[in-house]
Computed example of a mutant assay.
Amino acid sequence: MRTKHFAAILLLTGILAASCTTHTDKTVKNERIAMTDAISEVKQALDGQVAAWNKGELENAMDFYWESPDMLWISRNGTEKGWQEVLEMFQTDFTDRSKMGEYTYEPLHIEQVGPEAVYYVYRWKIDLQGKKLMGGVSSQLWKKVEGRWVITSEHAS
């Protein structure tokens, strides 16, 4: 009798262990896929923002920022808070396409820091008529807001 119980317990333990392992493996795999998707989506979004900038479409480039009074811009000049304030700052600095130049960047670091948050660091520069107008390093916090990835905070220096 004890042998039957022991065999049943071993069989049940094996089934439970296999079930838990399969569930855990699927969960880990799904999390890796979600992380890969998030990072890929943010990379595509930044490429979209740069493409809009290089077409001289400042307002379209701003669509990649969180349209909120809580959006934060940090630079060596200090901070600006709010999407509208940052747009107005850009409009003052880049009054027309001829002053926007050609924006390029080189990724330095990207990581998913939460289920719907990605931290992206890259080196950037803007060339105007073949000469470097400005450049530096940016760190951006991208969050998924209402189903799309937007920059909620950027530090450019």
Rank of each mutant, 00 (worst) to 15 (best):
A17C: 00
G82K: 05
A45F: 00
S153R: 11
T24Q: 10
S138M: 05
M89F: 13
L10A: 06
K26N: 14
Q84A: 14
M89I: 02
G82V: 10
I39G: 07
W142I: 12
R97G: 05
T152R: 03
E57G: 05
S138I: 02
V137W: 00
G101I: 02
L46D: 13
K125M: 07
L58N: 12
M134P: 01
R32P: 01
I74L: 13
I126K: 07
M62E: 14
L72P: 06
I110N: 04
A17Q: 02
V145W: 14
D47R: 08
E80L: 13
W142K: 07
R148H: 12
V145T: 14
E88T: 00
W53C: 09
W66C: 14
T152L: 15
L58G: 10
P69Y: 09
F94T: 05
K43F: 06
I151T: 12
E88S: 04
W142F: 12
G82P: 10
K29C: 03
V28C: 08
G56T: 06
A38W: 01
S68P: 01
S98Q: 11
A61D: 14
G114Y: 00
A51H: 04
E57K: 14
T21F: 00
K143P: 13
G101S: 09
V121H: 11
K144W: 08
E31W: 09
Q44R: 08
Y122G: 07
A156E: 09
G101P: 04
Y122S: 07
A45D: 04
S68C: 01
E41K: 11
K43E: 14
K29N: 11
G14P: 00
I33T: 13
G114W: 00
N30A: 14
T13C: 03
A7S: 03
K131S: 08
S68Y: 11
D70P: 03
G14F: 02
W149Q: 06
A117I: 02
D63L: 15
Y65G: 11
M62I: 14
E88A: 00
P107T: 13
M71H: 10
V50W: 12
A7M: 12
Y65I: 09
I126C: 04
E111D: 14
Q91V: 00
L58W: 13
G48I: 09
W149D: 08
W66M: 11
T13F: 02
L10N: 00
A34Y: 08
Q91Y: 04
D127E: 03
L87R: 01
I110A: 09
H5V: 04
L10Y: 02
L58R: 07
V121M: 10
M100E: 12
K4E: 11
K131F: 09
K26G: 01
T13E: 02
N30I: 08
A7V: 12
T95V: 15
I110G: 03
E80M: 04
K131R: 10
L46I: 05
E67K: 13
F6V: 14
F90K: 08
E154H: 01
A8L: 11
D25G: 03
E102F: 11
F6L: 11
E116W: 00
I126F: 07
